[in-house]
Amino acid sequence: MRLTIKTEELRDELIRRVEDLSRQSLLQCYQCGKCSAGCPVVDEMDVIPSEIIRLLQIGRLEEVLNSKTIWVCASCLQCASRCPKGVEFSNICDALRQMVLRKRLSNPRMDADEVSAIMISDAPQMGVVAALRKLNG
């Protein structure tokens, strides 16, 4: 695998948009990986949280937007809570989700029409509302 780093990709406006939306500075991350180490849903991720930040640092936005990771995050905020540099991955993740959802691109993980009848009739309302807001825009 080879990566040709292009300066214009590093300076991609959309990556600055991720920083603005998430209020996080990507270069503040020094890649200790503590976010990944404590993530409760990391098993289901294809790219671990610290790698998502790394990919953004080196200009690979597309790869990140196509990752399964951003839909797996449950916003439990453990990553943000423990980050030694105060980088809140949970916010970055939300920003990435929003970038996909606001373009009205389909969410590969959840369609509003497909929320199961059991969930509608059984799960706490807060869970259904939260899921729709987080994962369906």
Partner: peptide, 22 residues
């Protein structure tokens, strides 16, 4: 192992370490 540990806890007589290999 390159990475920071996020959590350590003791369970079943073991010291369980949640770390990362970046």
């Amino acid at each position: 192992l390159r990475g920071k540990v996020s959590k350590i806890f003791e369970e079943d007589g073991k010291v369980v370490v949640w770390g990362v290999d970046t």
